[in-house]
Design a protein around this nucleic acid. Structure first.
Length: 563
RNA sequence: UGGGAAGUAGCCAAGUGGUUAAGGCACGAGAUUUUGAUUCUUGCAUUCGAAGGUUCGAGUCCUUCCUUCCCAGCCA
């Protein structure tokens, strides 16, 4: 983005530059890959991996493959493949023709497995899952060899063939690599290479009933595609020896290398697929794309911009420290981006009537409202002004506290773009609730300034009571009220924020808002950033989602003063 | 108590033996302001998990210790 503050190289960039400098990269072209398993929706954590992989390819003039790691048909679905692709595109990255599936390599993988068997480097094991667990040993005790470990090559070949042909039930046999049952690294204690599964695969259907495991598939897929730098998260660090084992199998003539970085954690947010699924399944949110969800589809619907998320990830940096990034950094990035591009509109969310006693009945004036003061080319739009208006209830105080410089009896403020007004009296209902505020205006202050140059401390937004439209406004807040949901009680559901969604059924908005579409970035002046909801907003029933509030030093001051 | 990793401010994060330890967020102070927004100015680690040691010189090298994370799926 334009936002090019100079950042020092991260450790992966250093490795790449070093590799490039020393001529270790074939054709001087780095090749990375983003390899999600299509078993769910992408979330904010994935944005980091996407930005690293696609970003590196962009920066060093290489390429980045999209590879769907579809080796477990039980969990995977075309729906997820589609959403993953659309989310990456939304972020602004494109893999072009380099779209791959691990399942594309099933035949090659099978041939390699056969070769391994023939070379005595893999064997078919009849141990049950429980037995295999026993034989594996523990973190502190070595494992022991399976009785099948020295089965003859011929017998292995025969058994593997019959596994493939569907002669055995699930769980009857596995194909395992013959590495070292006593290795201190458990991933090297004869890892499973193939297991039997009769699930239907989203792409290969019923062609296969044996499926290759991650530790076998991933490195070989990388090698086949000519990946140079295979970047993944920290928990795969101790799979690296298995990765290197697989890429050094005879006949594999390209050697990619694996590097690991710390995954993105953000406080107040939950990224666990399992927990997010629970929220969806139990109706605690409206779906995977609920605007409160940390999924890419969720934040997109909420109104976050892809540019701001890329900036966020780049500000977080890439390292190997497992940290937790402040939610406030993400909000900062969103505000910074939206401030430059959001169209300003006036919306009164908690309306109270303001009546200008000395303004002519029935008169309508139109003022020019700038669309964005940060962008001189954004133009203006018309906003209607009449005798009866709505202002925010919060913008009037009968007994003003110290430091309050909005409207109160006798005080003059500016109505944005329009006139100076001075409050004179209030009307109340039987409960004492204010139903209307009366004021007078200064006709000389048209446009919001006066000839005598007198200043007012407060400027309020407003909307004409007769020339406005109604809309539903959804005030979203954090889904969880604790920094680390569940840390206190052990149950993240205890930390659900009951106020994460407050629906305002009848907000009053200037007419210009009627044309706002999902995807248009809006700022409701003094309220926050908003976007029309992509599911529920229609010309007949406008619905706006609050993306993020504006910074609010007044409410911070109020809190400090204990108000 | 096996193996693999990581510890620099409230949160990220530069720093790869040689001036007063970058930068961003957060937070504080002030100015400007037709959004209590934005913008601007300004403050914010005598110290790098701890203790020893090497060195003229250590966040960087050595030793020991402490803390945290990951691994025992026929998941990825």
């Amino acid at each position: 983005m334009e936002n090019k503050e100079e950042r020092p190289l991260n450790f992966i960039e250093k490795i790449i530059e070093d590799d490039l400098r020393s001529g270790r990269v074939p054709n001087d072209t780095i090749v990375t890959r983003f390899p999600p398993e299509p078993n769910g929706y992408l979330h904010i954590g994935h944005i980091k991996a996407i930005c690293i992989n696609f970003g590196l390819a962009e920066k060093y003039g290489g390429r980045c493959h999209l590879r769907l790691d579809d080796t477990n048909p039980e969990k995977e679905d075309q729906e997820y493949i589609d959403s993953i692709k659309s989310d990456i595109h939304w972020l602004g990255f494109d893999w072009g023709e380099y779209e791959y599936y691990a399942s594309d390599y099933y035949d090659q993988l099978y041939q390699i497995a056969l070769r391994l068997i023939k070379e005595g480097k893999a064997y078919v094991d009849s141990l049950s899952a429980e037995e295999m667990k026993e034989y594996r040993g523990t973190l502190t005790e070595p494992g022991k060899d399976s009785p099948d470990r020295n089965r003859s090559i011929e017998k292995n070949l025969d058994l593997f063939e019959r596994m493939k042909n569907g002669e055995f039930p699930e769980g009857a046999y596995t194909l395992r690599a013959k590495i070292d049952m006593k290795s201190p690294n458990i991933n090297l204690r004869d890892p499973a290479l193939y297991r039997i599964k009769y699930a239907e695969h989203p792409r290969t259907g019923k062609k296969w009933c044996i499926y290759p495991m991650y530790d076998f598939t991933h490195p070989i897929s990388d090698a086949i595609e000519g990946i140079t730098h295979s970047i993944c998260t920290l928990e795969f660090e101790d799979h690296r020896p298995a990765y290197d084992w697989a890429t050094s199998i005879d006949g594999i003539d390209h050697t990619p290398h694996q590097y690991e970085f710390a995954r993105l954690n953000i406080n107040y947010l939950l990224m666990s697929k399992r927990k997010l699924l629970y929220l969806v399944k139990n109706g605690l949110v409206s779906g995977w794309d609920d605007p409160r969800m940390p999924t890419i589809s969720g934040i997109r619907r909420r109104g976050y911009s892809p540019e701001s998320m890329r900036d966020f990830v780049s500000r977080v940096g890439v390292a190997k420290v497992e940290g937790v990034v402040d939610y406030s950094l993400m909000e900062f990035c969103v505000r910074e981006d939206l401030n430059k591009r959001a169209k300003r509109l006036m919306a009164v969310l908690d309306p109270v009537k303001l009546i200008i006693d000395n303004y002519p009945e029935g008169q309508i004036e139109y003022f020019d409202a700038e669309n964005n003061p940060e962008d001189s080319e954004s133009g203006t739009h018309k906003v209607a002004f009449t005798k009866e208006l709505y202002i925010e209830r919060e913008d009037f105080m009968e007994n003003p506290v110290k430091g309050y410089h909005r409207l109160y009896i006798g005080n003059e403020i500016r109505l944005k773009h329009a006139y100076y007004v001075t409050a004179t009296s209030v009307e109340k209902d039987a409960d004492g609730t204010i139903t209307a505020i009366h004021c007078t205006y200064d006709p000389e202050s048209r446009g919001g300034t006066t000839a005598d140059g007198r200043k007012v401390k407060g400027t309020s937004h407003w909307v004409s009571a007769t020339e406005c439209i109604s809309a539903e406004v959804r005030q979203y807040d954090k889904l969880f009220k604790a920094e680390n949901p569940g840390a206190e009680t052990g149950n993240y559901l205890d930390d659900l924020n009951p106020d994460s969604l407050i629906v305002i059924k009848d907000a009053k908005i200037e007419k210009e808002a009627a044309s706002a579409k999902p995807g248009d970035y809006l700022q409701f002046i003094r309220n926050g950033y908003y976007m029309a909801d992509s599911h529920d907003s229609s010309p007949e029933h406008l619905v706006f989602n609050r993306t993020v509030t504006l910074k609010d030093s007044w409410s911070k001051m109020k809190q400090k003063m204990g108000i």
